[in-house]
Amino acid sequence: MIKAGEKILEGARQALAFARGEAVEGFVVHEPPSVDVRAIRRKTGLSQAKFAARFGFTVDAVRNWEQGRRKPEGPARVLLKVIEREPEAVLRALS
C-alpha cells in the first residue's frame, strides 16, 4: 500500500510541475505547428463571428489570430487543426 501511495504522490507532483510549465520526464505534449486561422475559417465559409460562435471561440480571439496580434496556443491550436481537417466531426462532438 505504501508503494501505491508513493506512486500516486509522485504522479501528483509531476502533474503539478507540468502545469507550471516545467519539463517533466515521461510527459510528452504534441502541439501542432502554427495554423492559418484565416484559411481555416474561409474554408468553412463562415464569417469571423459565426466561426467563433460555432466552434466556441471569442470573436476577439479569431480577429487577433487572423491579424497576427496573437497566436492560438495549446488546446485552441489543436482544435483549429481538427476543424481544418474534419469540421463536421467537431460539430458532431459539440452537439
Rank of each mutant, 00 (worst) to 15 (best):
L16R: 13
L16V: 15
L16F: 14
A17D: 06
A17S: 09
A17Q: 14
F18W: 10
F18H: 11
A19G: 11
A19N: 12
A19R: 14
A19K: 11
R20I: 09
R20Y: 13
E22A: 07
E22K: 15
E22V: 11
E22R: 12
E22H: 05
A23R: 14
A23D: 13
A23S: 12
A23F: 11
V24H: 01
V24F: 08
E25N: 13
G26T: 04
G26Y: 10
F27W: 12
V28Y: 12
H30E: 12
E31C: 04
E31T: 08
E31Y: 03
E31S: 09
E31D: 14
E31H: 07
P33V: 07
P33K: 09
P33W: 08
P33D: 14
P33A: 14
V35F: 07
V35G: 01
D36M: 03
D36E: 13
D36G: 04
V37L: 05
V37G: 00
V37E: 00
R38T: 06
R38C: 12
A39N: 08
A39I: 05
R41D: 06
R41I: 02
R41V: 00
R42S: 12
R42K: 15
R42Y: 06
K43D: 07
K43C: 03
K43V: 03
K43I: 01
G45T: 06
L46Q: 05
L46T: 00
L46H: 02
S47A: 10
S47T: 15
S47N: 02
S47M: 04
Q48I: 12
Q48N: 03
Q48H: 04
A49P: 06
A49K: 13
K50Y: 12
K50A: 10
F51Q: 00
F51N: 02
A52N: 10
A52T: 01
A52V: 00
A52Y: 07
A52H: 10
A52G: 11
A53R: 09
A53V: 01
A53P: 06
A53T: 07
R54K: 13
F55N: 01
F55P: 00
G56R: 14
G56A: 11
G56F: 05
F57H: 04
F57D: 01
V59G: 06
V59L: 11
V59M: 10
V59D: 01
D60V: 13
D60K: 10
D60H: 13
A61V: 03
A61K: 07
A61N: 12
A61S: 08
A61F: 07
V62D: 04
V62A: 02
R63N: 13
R63P: 06
N64H: 08
N64S: 14
W65F: 12
W65H: 04
W65G: 01
W65I: 02
W65N: 01
E66P: 00
Q67L: 13
G68K: 03
G68Q: 10
G68W: 01
R69L: 09
R69D: 03
R69C: 04
R69K: 14
R69T: 05
R69I: 09
R69P: 05
R70F: 03
R70L: 08
R70N: 05
K71I: 09
P72Y: 01
P72C: 02
P72D: 01
P72L: 11
E73L: 15
G74K: 15
G74E: 13
P75Q: 15
P75A: 15
P75C: 11
P75W: 13
R77V: 07
R77T: 11
V78E: 09
V78Q: 14
L79Q: 02
L80N: 01
L80I: 00
K81R: 14
